[in-house]
Write a protein that binds this DNA or RNA. Structure first.
Lengths: 271, 271
DNA sequence: CGCAGATTTGAATGCAATCAACACTGGTGG
DNA sequence: CCACCAGTGTTGATTGCATTCAAATCTGCG
């Protein structure tokens, strides 16, 4: 149940994601599984949607990595969130038609487009899914708040450590991180635009963090070498992700939650 | 219609706010006007709700000023948003039970508590209000994104100019700013915690902005002396507030001309 | 008046940006 | 097959915006 490797279907990705933050009934899962999807492959560094548009579909990320960003007056870029498979980063267009930011593929992506009409039907016929989708946009906002605190009040080392904790936990919650390993295909320039730091400084701080033995990187994959120290370094407390206990309980270090049975065993070969 | 002075009732405040971002039918206004409210006065510097709680009511701000904040590990505070009369800053507790941040009164407030049960009834019987409330939380998130860009990529002068533009437009949209005057009862220390800057630096930058003739302050009220130059100084474009045209159309000056058609991506080095 | 909170000013320090090269990688085309 | 190129990562030197520390007003208020 915990491992849902790259073979998952598009609908499974979405269901898995929503199940990580809300309780879904069997009927609701079925309804989600019946959503009409239009699949597309998106090359790296191209926009899924951009600022000013009024899309009539939402993008479900099936594979890859997406960044939400704004371009500011002086040509600077601020990346405001990272999005992973299972996310619908423009779900808000159901209620706010015009995009006030852009969504770009940070890595080659497979995206499933869902017509707005299908989603509005869904929430009308399934109030529980209305709740779940609303909740999804609220978790998105909660993550945004944590990023704001991160950028506003933490130094570069803390920011990066915190970001790696978050990305790991989110990937883990949808079955995309096994054994504290995961792929995080984001360049240092993009990390800088996400953290409000320069590329050069990202590079130096990342070296520090690697040298301290908190994370390591073997080519395409990132490994968290010392989860507890990384959490401490990033002042990271995962409550803001609002994950359901069975998706994240093992990480709630502060609030004492009973140990859970680990289903997915440590597989020597990953992915 | 545009002026709704301090005499407005609690329900009118809420209706006025929602009408500034969504279309409300007569029936929906009536339903809102029938909401049960429990009124309370909150002294300055006390919390309405705080992190970790699971409230069973939402707070409608009727009068005063509220800040949403988190306390970080090293005793620092990050204020993540300001809230004004008409706002329901903890509306998200309808869907996410546990607060991941606190709400504090930055000025003496009058607050109307609305039971969750009344709100869930409301959205069940009035789908249009479900849409409006969902949309309200999404506008909240859009403002958060702009704050993130503000703190991440703008310098202190731009940040403060931008903030003053936003506060003015939001107050104006609910009838609380006449003639570019408004009360903004926030200390420089609080501004610093909101902008990720030190109190001392806020003080110096505010002096600059006043000296440049962008804003002025006569005791309790703030006046925007030069709206166009303040907008320019803050790189401010109001689309992200998602105000309905009759609430904010007069301000869409710059962006109406320079349509934001951004093709391609920001190259981090475009010298 | 006396006090606490808020604002203001000065001086020294520091974190991160900027500027400028250089190394490394994978992909492209001659 | 190799030269070339663009994107990415790395390093050094310098600059600057903002912080920190400290203390002096200013303000409202009991």
């Amino acid at each position: 149940m915990n491992s849902l490797p790259a073979t998952a279907t598009e609908h499974e990705r979405l269901i898995r994601k929503l199940a990580s933050i809300a309780v879904l009934t069997a009927a609701e899962r079925d309804a989600l599984a019946g959503l009409p999807l239009r699949l597309r492959s998106i090359p790296e560094n191209t926009d899924l949607v951009h600022e000013g548009e009024t899309p009539s579909e939402c993008c479900l990320i099936v594979e890859g990595f997406v960044g939400r960003y704004k371009l500011l007056g002086q040509g600077q870029r601020q990346i405001m969130s990272f999005h992973i498979p299972g996310d619908i980063p423009d779900l808000h267009t159901l209620q706010i038609r015009v995009m006030d930011h852009s969504l770009g593929a940070l890595a080659p992506c497979r995206v499933a487009y869902i017509p707005h009409a299908a989603l509005t039907d869904l929430v009308r016929t399934h109030p529980g899914l209305c709740t779940a989708l609303w909740r999804d946009t609220l978790v998105d906002a909660a993550i945004l708040r944590e990023w704001l605190a991160n950028i506003g009040r933490r130094n570069a080392h803390q920011r990066l450590a915190h970001l790696y904790c978050e990305i790991y936990m989110r990937l883990h919650a949808v079955g995309l991180a096994e054994g504290r390993r995961f792929v995080f295909p984001v360049t240092q320039a993009e990390l800088g635009d996400a953290q409000g730091l320069s590329t050069v400084h990202i590079n130096r701080v990342l070296q520090d963090i690697r040298r301290d033995g908190l994370i390591a990187s073997d080519g395409t994959e990132t490994v968290i070498s010392d989860w507890l120290r990384l959490q401490a370094a990033g002042d990271f407390e995962p409550e803001y992700l609002h994950l359901r206990p069975d998706a994240g309980a093992e990480f709630h270090t502060r609030s004492a939650i009973s140990a859970r049975v680990v289903v997915g065993r440590a597989s020597p070969t990953l992915t």
